[in-house]
Design a protein around this nucleic acid. Structure first.
Lengths: 197, 197
DNA sequence: GTCTATAATTCGATAGAC
DNA sequence: GTCTATCGAATTATAGAC
C-alpha cells in the first residue's frame, strides 16, 4: 500500500497493527494489570517477544493503545437546547464502536498514568467544546467534570459493572434520561450554594 | 470484652480486625490486583502467612473486607422534594468516612466477583429505598441504576480519576449540582421516548 | 499462635539462534 | 524479522519449626 524507498516495510506494520488491536481489546476487557503481554500476543497470533521488540515495554504499548480521539463533532452547529442530547448520543456511539475508551477508563481506575491520560482527553477534547457552547467562560473545567461524572458513570454501570437496567436500556431511553442532566451541566447557571469550602 | 468459655480468644480477633482494616485501605487505594497480601500484612504489622491462615485466600479476604453496609437512612422521613439532596449528602459522607465502598468500586471494574457484589448492594440497599420514596413500583431497578450512574460516576471522577474540579468542589457545591439530577431519576415520570429497542 | 522457609506460578523483559 | 529459551522478580499459598 505505502511506498517503500528501497528497504522492505515487510509485514511488520501489519503485525504492529494486529498487536495494537488485540491490546485495546484486552486492556478494555481485563484492565491494565490483568491484560498480559502473553495474552495480547496470543490474540494477535504473534510471539510475545515481538510485542516488547516493537513497543519497548508494556507501559509504552498501553500508551499507544490508549491514544484516543473522541472525535467530538462541532456542537455549535446544533441548537443550544439539544447540546445535552448531542453529547450523550455521540458518546454512546463512540464507545460502542471502539473499545479504546473503556480500556482507558478501566486502566485509569488503578493506574496513575492512565488516569492522567483521561484527564488529558477531557481537558483537550471535551472542555474546549463545552466552553464554546456553554456561553460561560469561567467554569468550563467544572462543567466538563460534571459532564464526565455522568457520562463515565453511566459507562461504568453499563460496561463494567453490568447493572441490568443500564445494560438493557435502549439508546433512546439512555438519551431521554441523561440528556437533560448533561444539558444542565453544560448550560445552567451556577446553583445557589455557598461557593468554596 | 467477650466471654470465653475456657479457651482463650487471644489476640487473634484483634489481628483479624487489623488485617481487615488494612485490607480495606489497600484494596481502596490500589485495586484488587495491585493490593498484595504482603503489603496488607505489613500495614497491619502481621505476618503474611497469618492473613492466609485467618481468611483462607486473597479472594475470601476481599469478600469479607468488601462486605459493605451503605447505612441508608429512612428517606421517607424527609420531604419528597429533598430526597435527591438527601441521597447525595449521605453518599458523600459515607464514602468519605469509609474506604470500603471505593475499594469495592475499584475492584469491581476488573473483577467479576466484586462487580456482582456491587450489584447486590444496589439491589438490596438502594433499590428498596427508591421504591419507597419514588411512588413508582414498576421501574425501581431502572431508577436505581440511573442514580448509581451519577453517584458512582462522581465518585469515580473525584477519588479515582482525580479530576481537578471534582476533587476541589465543596460538599455544598456537589449537592447543588447533583441533587437535582438524582431527584429527577428518583421521582420523575418516564421521559417520552420509544420504549425498548 | 506465630513465623521462617520455600514451593509453585506467572509475569515482564532479554539474549541469541535461525 | 521471527522465535526459542530463559532470566529475575514478584506473587499466592503451603509445610513445618518454635
Amino acid at each position: 500500500m505505502v511506498r517503500e524507498p528501497s528497504k522492505r516495510p515487510r509485514a511488520a506494520e501489519a503485525s504492529k497493527a494486529a498487536i495494537l488491536a488485540a491490546a485495546r481489546q484486552r486492556f478494555a476487557a481485563d484492565g491494565y494489570d490483568r491484560a498480559t503481554i502473553r495474552a495480547i500476543a496470543a490474540d494477535a497470533s504473534i510471539d510475545p517477544a515481538m510485542v516488547i521488540r516493537y513497543f519497548g515495554s508494556k507501559e509504552k504499548l498501553f500508551a499507544q493503545a490508549a491514544d484516543f480521539d473522541l472525535r467530538l463533532p462541532d456542537l455549535t452547529a446544533v441548537p443550544r437546547a439539544r447540546v445535552g442530547a448531542a453529547f450523550v448520543e455521540h458518546f454512546l456511539e463512540r464507545w460502542e464502536a471502539d473499545d479504546t475508551f473503556m480500556a482507558l477508563i478501566r486502566a485509569a481506575v488503578t493506574n496513575d498514568a492512565a488516569a492522567k491520560r483521561v484527564r488529558g482527553v477531557l481537558a483537550t477534547q471535551v472542555a474546549p467544546m463545552i466552553e464554546r457552547v456553554s456561553g460561560d467562560e469561567s467554569h468550563t473545567s467544572l462543567r466538563a467534570a460534571l459532564v464526565a461524572s455522568q457520562l463515565l458513570g453511566f459507562a461504568l454501570c453499563r460496561y463494567a459493572l453490568r447493572l441490568g437496567p443500564a445494560v438493557t436500556m435502549s439508546r433512546d431511553e439512555v438519551v431521554g434520561w441523561l440528556a437533560p442532566t448533561v444539558q444542565r451541566y453544560v448550560t445552567a447557571p451556577l446553583p445557589v450554594t455557598r461557593r468554596a469550602r
